[in-house]
C-alpha cells in the first residue's frame, strides 16, 4: 500500500493579526506549523500502514523552508518525504497548486492520498478535491471515520450537515479528513533522530513534467486583489429595560446581523 499524505506548512493563524492602520499582516514571531488538519491525515496514514503494511510519503509544495514540516512528518513516522519546490510555483492559487501536487503524486505513485480537510491559512478546502479531479480518481471529503479498508477499496464515514454518510470507494482514492477522525500522535525521539538525517527528495517543475502555463501565478485563475482587516468590534451596547424588553431588542439586533 502506497500512501501519500499531503501536508502544508502554515503560519499559526491564531497569532496572525492585521494592523488596522496600515492594513498589513503582523507576523513578527509567528511560528510555522504543519496545518493541524494535515496531522490527522498523517495519523490516518500511519495507522493504515501499521494495519496493512506499506509506506507513507509526506508531500508538500512550498519554499525550501517547508522542508522543516516534512521532517516533522518523518519524526511522527512517515517513511519519506517529497518537497515540491521551484520558483515557478510561486503565487499559485488552489488550482495551480492542485495541478502541481497531482503531477508530483503521479511521479511518486500511490494507492491512497490523504489530505486535511482544509488549511488554516486559506481555509479553502479546495486543493484535495481539485487534485483528485486532475488525477482522475474519486475523492471523499470530510472523512470522520474509517470503517473498512482493503486492497479493493475503502469504506468511510463522511460528515454531512445533518449527520454522516457511509461511503465506499475503490482504490486509488483521495480522502480529506476532519479532526474527529483520530488523535494525531506526537513525534518520537527515534523518529526525530531519523528525521534529522533523512534525505528529503526535491522535485522541480521539470521533474514532474508540469506545463509552465499551468503552475504558479500564470496557472492561477484567481488573484488576490487586496487584503484588509475585518470590521473591528463595534462599541458594546448595554441593553436596558425588563428582561422581555432586553431580549426583544437583542433578537432584533441579531436578526439584523443575520445571526438568527
Amino acid at each position: 500500500m502506497k500512501i501519500i499524505v499531503c501536508i502544508k506548512q502554515v503560519p499559526d493563524t491564531a497569532e496572525v493579526r492585521i494592523n488596522p492602520e496600515t492594513n498589513t499582516l503582523v507576523r513578527d514571531g509567528v511560528p510555522s506549523i504543519i496545518n493541524p488538519y494535515d496531522l490527522h491525515a498523517l495519523e490516518a496514514g500511519l495507522r493504515l500502514k501499521e494495519q496493512v503494511g506499506g509506506t507513507v510519503t509526506a508531500l508538500t509544495m512550498g519554499p525550501p523552508q517547508a522542508e522543516e514540516a516534512l521532517r516533522e512528518a518523518i519524526s511522527m513516522g512517515a517513511d519519506d518525504a517529497v518537497l515540491l519546490t521551484d520558483r515557478a510555483f510561486a503565487g499559485a492559487d488552489t488550482l495551480a497548486t492542485a495541478y502541481a501536487l497531482s503531477r508530483a503524486a503521479r511521479k511518486v505513485g500511490f494507492d491512497l492520498i490523504l489530505c486535511g480537510k482544509q488549511a488554516i491559512d486559506g481555509d479553502t478546502a479546495q486543493v484535495g478535491p481539485e487534485m483528485a479531479e486532475l488525477l482522475g480518481i474519486p475523492h471523499i471529503a470530510y472523512v470522520k471515520g474509517l470503517v473498512g479498508f482493503s486492497v479493493e477499496g475503502v469504506r468511510v464515514q463522511r460528515l454531512m450537515e445533518d449527520g454522516y454518510d457511509i461511503v465506499e470507494s475503490p482504490l486509488p482514492v483521495l480522502l480529506t479528513v476532519v479532526k474527529e477522525l483520530n488523535e494525531p500522535r506526537l513525534p518520537s525521539l527515534k523518529g526525530k533522530m531519523r528525521a534529522r538525517k533523512a534525505e528529503i527528495r526535491r522535485l522541480t517543475r521539470e521533474d514532474i513534467g508540469a506545463e509552465e502555463e499551468r503552475v504558479g501565478l500564470k496557472g492561477s485563475p484567481t488573484q488576490v486583489r487586496r487584503i484588509f482587516a475585518p470590521e473591528t468590534r463595534k462599541e458594546r451596547k448595554m441593553l436596558t429595560g425588563t428582561a422581555e424588553e432586553q431580549v426583544t431588542r437583542l433578537v432584533e439586533e441579531l436578526k439584523s446581523l443575520k445571526c438568527i
Binding site: T13, D121, P221, Q223, R225, I227, F228, P230
Partner: peptide, 15 residues
Amino acid sequence: PAFGGNIMATILCPR
C-alpha cells in the same frame, strides 16, 4: 476571510 478570520481578502477571477 482568511487566516482564521483574522484578515479579509478580495479575490478576482479576471481571465
